[in-house]
Write a protein that binds this DNA or RNA. Structure first.
Length: 844
RNA sequence: GCCCGAGUGGCGGAAUGGCAGACGCACCGCACUCAAAAUGCGGCGGGUAAAACCGUGUGGGUUCGAGUCCCACCUCGGGCACCA
């Protein structure tokens, strides 16, 4: 490990005993951290005026989960968000930059079981720890807006929103096979299953049929997809792509197949979804999902035992096994036949687990010649294969490789001779005309399973009454508070919610009929809590609703959202969904919550994510102790572009500390008085200063924070040189340069910047000093260097006026001795002139 | 398998199609010092005595000019994965 805390490093960056005796002459990060933290607290620097006097801007970091103290990942993410917040403050915007905690969740519950405590104890203790660390870390937050999703004042409104969703039919309950984590003893949403395992604990997920609550996010699939257009260019391309893939829009057709009567089973109609209606004539069998209700409905009595045995076999498989594409296809014949609506052919109906119950209609027409999965199945069970699209490739029946490319339809009656695209269009026309099908769009996205069989979450505000059914808890009775008498063992997972054990809590009168009824005992997925917190921040104490409508109009949408890419499809998709529903409820104008998104990279150590098992963790607190807050923050920013990972083994917080000390010393060297007129100062240094600000402005606006740090280093170097061997410490241009350094550093290294500001004779806070204005006249040089190339290689440099004409520059370049020598008297074939920077001469 | 993204010194990384390697780390040298640390100054892609010349994963192409644009490939990283 590089840069481990050593005695040597400590001496480099902290006070030497001999220097410490002369107070104020050596850079001591401990001293300045202790000095400024209370001053800022007093000033309340980052509370927005919120009075409309200045343009409002909202910047938000994904709020933390309170699992112990802050770690290196928080340090990076919040350093990034802080650059934006502090930059916008310097630019004069009225900036909202709040902080809160996503404080419901399973770890608190597990900790409570282990310690025989209530989850709230662990949660709020950790929040206090993190809050103190954030203050030490000097994030530019408005602390007065702090919120916690586990506060009843917060989850009251989460419940209120649930009730609105329920009223609109967007929250509903259904019995359905769901993902089940055997370790956490709770269900999981699709988004929380990664490679067939629980996203949180890694336990292989199993399926279980349960009556669960869902949000109808699928109803918003189209809008979630279409509105991504607004986000293009402001969200990372790959996040948009991931969401697009996750939503998985696919265009095709619904086609009805009639299942012929068999024994005492009557005729039935079954619809399939297909993206390839052009291949209808190539269908040679029909498959229904083995675990769908449909399979049991269709199966003949003779085949029922075989189906049930197969279903048992499927249930025994883990999700990982089931999803393996290596696996041989399995299935059973149902004893039934489906009629192809196009050609009247009878197709055997099979039940198999390669068809998914919850995608499309849970049934497919199998076209083995042009679908690899169907072909694999056909070969396993010796079913016929008929090619209907000539792609010029070998017969799939012979090769075992389905052909999926372009081609010409064959063996397809009236579709013969058509291309794939024309065939698809024509086939849809035919089935639509016959009333046996229609064009349709299908989505991969499933409804969001939101109920959890755990304690530490927002209770679902529903009462179950034998007479009235599901009855929402009336708004005026919200919040439905969690009972506080459950703790320790009583919270241990048992497959049903621990809330069921709190009898006094569960048993209530039905709000509708007054009869005996029970509360719903499930709690909400914590992603529900975080799907609207950015709205609560605009008016965290509002009691008339989840948020003050005027405040939402004033602040939303979030201008810059900052957080890890791990939430690309979880939190970000859910938050977009909530925003759209809340918009449709008429409560907000915005249709998208976050107009710009920055995904900061991870902090690694030695090429790997930090983890306990690898023993490569770096403790944030230790880094702050050894190098100081500013050095750690600066290192995070300087190490790489914001979206790239930072490998802590490759970077140098001690180098950052050295730079900060160097910058800080400049402030002590300035010999002019505050307010000295820079116009009278050294022109050369002024030019450097103003160019630096101009460049930094552009770089900040385009998110290249690491390069801004490099620019500030260049300015520090130039100023040092000016003091030691140029204009001298008393030149007002030096003051201008150092003040500029202080303002620039206020974005990355707030303590150092504030102390410099004070040493320069100013009142706090440098955070509100204002971004320096650029004098355009100082950006123009008297002379510039023009490069003279021959055949693309630099052969000479000319010092010329920046407004030299093309002709003049051409003549000067051609007259250059170096060029003359290379041309050797010959006329150049071509001369490209880009005044005043470049001439390229192409010899004959 | 499908879909993205990225490959630049010893390292992290700069570079609107126009001087590749800004800035920093590490390393080397010098000044200051009895000495060290700290600080300041200088050097630092390969190659050469110095030049020439060669250099942005590989091979092609477009262009007066390519790290940058296009095509193919290699490697690494990420996402999805029986989604009909």
């Amino acid at each position: 490990m590089h840069d481990v805390p050593t005695v040597k490093v400590k001496q480099h960056v902290s006070t030497q005993p001999s220097e410490a005796t002369q107070s104020g002459t050596a850079y001591d990060f401990r001293e300045i951290e202790a000095k400024w933290a209370p001053v800022w607290e007093e000033l309340g620097v980052f509370t927005p005026a919120d009075d409309g006097s200045r343009e409002r801007r909202y910047v938000l970091d994904m709020f933390p989960y309170p699992s112990g103290d802050l770690h290196m990942g928080h340090a990076e993410a919040f350093a990034m968000g802080d650059v934006v917040s502090r930059y916008w403050n310097q630019c004069g915007y009225d900036v909202l930059h709040p902080i809160g905690w996503d404080s419901f969740g399973l770890p608190a519950e597990n900790a409570a079981i282990k310690r025989d405590a209530h989850p709230a104890e662990w949660t709020y203790k950790n929040i206090d720890t993190q809050a103190a660390s954030f203050k030490r870390y000097a994030i530019s937050a408005d602390w007065s807006r702090r919120l916690h999703t586990s506060d009843p004042e917060y989850y009251r409104w989460t419940q209120w929103l649930f009730s609105r969703f329920y009223e609109k039919g967007l929250a509903y309950r259904k019995n359905h096979p769901v993902n089940w984590c055997p370790k956490d003893q709770t269900v999981l949403a699709n988004e929380q299953v990664v490679d067939g395992a629980c996203e949180r604990c890694g336990t292989p997920v199993t399926k279980k049929s349960l009556n669960q609550w869902y949000f109808k996010i699928t109803e918003y699939a189209d809008r979630l997809l279409d509105d991504m257009e607004q986000l293009k260019g402001h969200w990372p391309e790959r996040v948009l792509l991931m969401q697009k893939n996750w939503i998985g829009r696919s265009e095709g057709a619904h086609v009805d197949f009639v299942i012929a009567a068999e024994g005492d089973k009557p005729e039935a109609k079954t619809t399939v979804f297909t993206t390839r209606p052009d291949t209808l004539h190539g269908a040679t069998f029909f498959v229904v999902a083995a675990d769908a209700d449909l399979a049991g409905e269709l199966v003949t009595d003779a085949q029922r035992p075989a189906l049930e045995a197969y279903q048992e076999q499927v249930k025994a498989l883990s999700e990982i096994e089931r999803q393996s594409t290596e696996r041989e296809k399995t299935g059973v014949f149902t004893g039934r036949y489906a009629t192809n609506p196009l050609n009247g052919e009878k197709l055997p109906v099979w039940a198999a687990d390669y068809v998914l119950a919850d995608y499309g209609t849970g049934a497919i027409m199998a076209v083995p010649a042009h679908d690899q999965r169907d072909l694999d199945f056909a070969r396993t069970f010796d079913l016929p294969v008929r090619a209907v699209l000539d792609t010029g490739e070998e017969d799939p029946a012979a090769t075992g490789t389905a052909t999926t490319g372009e081609g010409t339809l064959i063996n397809s009656g009236e579709l013969d001779g058509l291309s794939k695209a024309d065939g698809i269009a024509r086939a849809i026309e035919i089935v639509e005309a016959a009333g046996t099908g229609e064009h349709t769009v299908n989505f991969r996205l499933r409804d969001w399973l939101l109920s959890r069989q755990r304690f530490w979450g927002t209770p679902i505000p529903i009462i179950h009454c034998a007479a009235c059914g599901e009855v929402p808890v009336p708004d005026e009775q919200l919040p439905v508070r969690l009972p506080d008498n459950l703790r320790g063992e009583q919270l241990s997972p048992k497959g049903t919610s621990p809330l069921a054990a709190a009898e006094e809590w569960v048993n209530v009168d039905c709000p509708r009929c007054g009869g005996a009824a029970q509360r719903d005992t499930d709690t909400m997925d914590t992603f529900v809590d975080s799907s609207w917190y950015f709205l609560r921040f605009v008016s965290p104490d509002y009691t008339e609703g989840p948020f003050d409508p005027q405040a939402v109009r004033d602040w939303m949408p979030v201008g810059q959202y900052v957080g890890g890419v791990e939430h690309a499809i979880l939190h970000l998709l859910y938050a977009r969904f909530f925003t759209k529903v809340i918009h449709d409820l008429g409560l907000i104008d915005a249709t998208e919550p976050f107009s710009a998104l920055l995904n900061q990279g991870q902090v690694l150590n030695g090429g790997r994510a930090m983890s306990k098992s690898l023993g490569n963790g770096v403790d944030l607190g230790e880094q702050l102790d050894v190098f100081g807050v500013d050095a750690v923050r600066l290192t995070m920013i300087f190490a790489s572009p914001p979206e790239d990972d930072v490998d802590w083994a490759d970077v140098s917080p001690s180098g950052s500390a050295k730079f900060l000390a160097r910058a800080w010393r400049l402030a002590g060297d300035v010999a002019s008085r505050p307010g000295a007129d820079p116009a009278a100062g050294d022109a050369q240094l002024r030019s450097v200063t103003h160019k630096t600000v101009a460049e930094a402005t552009e770089l900040l606006d385009s998110g290249k924070f690491n390069v801004v740090v490099a620019k500030s280093m260049e300015l520090v170097n130039a100023t040092r040189k000016a003091i030691d061997s140029g204009a001298g410490a008393a030149d007002p241009a030096v003051r201008e340069a150092v003040e500029t350094v202080a303002v620039m550093l206020s974005l990355f290294a707030p303590y150092t910047a504030e102390d410099m500001w004070a040493r320069l004779g100013h009142e706090p806070s440098v955070a509100k000093a204002g971004w320096p204005a650029v004098d355009p006249a100082l950006l123009v040089d008297d002379t510039v260097v023009a490069v003279v190339q021959v055949k693309g290689k630099v052969r000479d440099r000319l010092e010329v006026s920046p407004d030299i004409s093309e002709d003049e520059l051409r003549a000067t370049a051609l007259a250059s001795p170096a060029v003359q020598k290379l041309l050797d008297g010959a006329e150049p074939r071509k001369v490209i002139v880009r005044a005043p920077k470049l001439v390229n001469i192409v010899p004959a």
